[in-house]
């Protein structure tokens, strides 16, 4: 095994660069080193001006997502040895505006996440003061996988529909809506459907399926979106067939 590997890192300094540039760094290639370890080595030992986000280093915080050799990845879970002998291209997550170097602007997502109401909605007056909402293990299993989302934005980066039409609400937000719809304690399915049935809701999705493939937590946003289309279709057929009042 060679003892070093080259990182081709995209740099963008808004005060001096008119567009992103590429900069190369050689970092030690160690069996247990991830791409994030390589970037931290650069930051600590070579070039302190390099900017990137990270926090937990264990695939939970969801802040170190970047495009590694063109694939959206959590850099803390992507090992340099898998790219040996290199070089490894490290770019900011695709489809988002770049703030600086490897840091992208997530404002779009932050703005639309609350639109799908990802919290428990009750249609009665029961609150946590009245005690816990009880749930069986089966009821937990129904939504558990969708609750694993860490908002790392890899799915948005992999989604060409979002890249082409940034008004599309997008994979993670819709998967989170499905997470609450499937929760036995929740009564908000209709309210969320009213949001997602809108044009920028689920209809832009053409089921490329990449969101599901790149998800580091094995959530299935693509599946959630198609199931919303089916739900919306069922409701619409009902609305056309049944007289007002009975629906």
């Amino acid at each position: 095994m060679p003892d070093s590997i080259r990182l081709e890192v995209t740099r963008y300094r808004p005060d001096t660069d008119s567009e992103p540039q590429r900069q190369e760094y050689d970092v030690p290639l160690r069996k247990e080193w991830t791409v994030l370890d390589g970037l931290n080595h650069v930051k600590n030992e070579v070039d302190t001006t390099l900017s990137f986000r990270w926090s937990c280093r264990m695939g939970i915080c969801g802040s170190c997502g970047m495009n590694v050799d063109g694939e959206p990845k959590l850099t803390c879970a992507t090992f340099l040895t898998d790219y040996a002998p290199g070089p490894v291209r490290v770019e900011p997550l695709a489809n988002f505006p770049v703030v600086r170097d490897l840091v992208v602007d997530l404002f779009d997502f932050m703005e639309r996440l609350p639109r799908v109401k990802p919290w428990i909605i009750r249609d009665d007056d029961v609150t946590e003061v009245d005690g816990e909402y009880l749930q069986t293990p089966e009821e937990l299993d129904a939504y558990k996988q969708f609750s694993m989302c860490i908002n790392c934005m890899l799915c948005y980066s992999a989604c060409p529909v979002y890249g082409l039409d940034p008004t599309f609400i997008g994979p993670a937000a819709i998967a989170l809506a499905e997470r609450y719809d499937l929760d036995s304690r929740d009564h908000g399915a209709r309210e969320r459907l009213d949001v997602l049935i809108e044009h920028e809701g689920v209809w832009g999705c053409t089921f490329v399926g990449e969101c599901t493939r790149v998800c580091p937590k094995h959530v299935d946003p693509a599946g959630a979106i198609q199931r919303y289309k089916l739900k919306a279709a069922k409701e619409s057929v009902k609305a056309f067939l049944l007289p007002r009042g009975t629906r």
């Binding site: 963008y12 489809n95 602007d105 060409p160 053409t206 490329v208």
Partner: peptide, 23 residues
């Protein structure tokens, strides 16, 4: 105001990855 850079999406985006091409 933060000056961000928006990367244009190439018209050939679907030739750059096998799964996009199959799609």
């Amino acid at each position: 105001e933060v000056r961000t850079y928006r990367r244009p999406m190439s018209i050939w985006w679907w030739t750059k990855k096998r799964s996009y091409f199959v799609f």
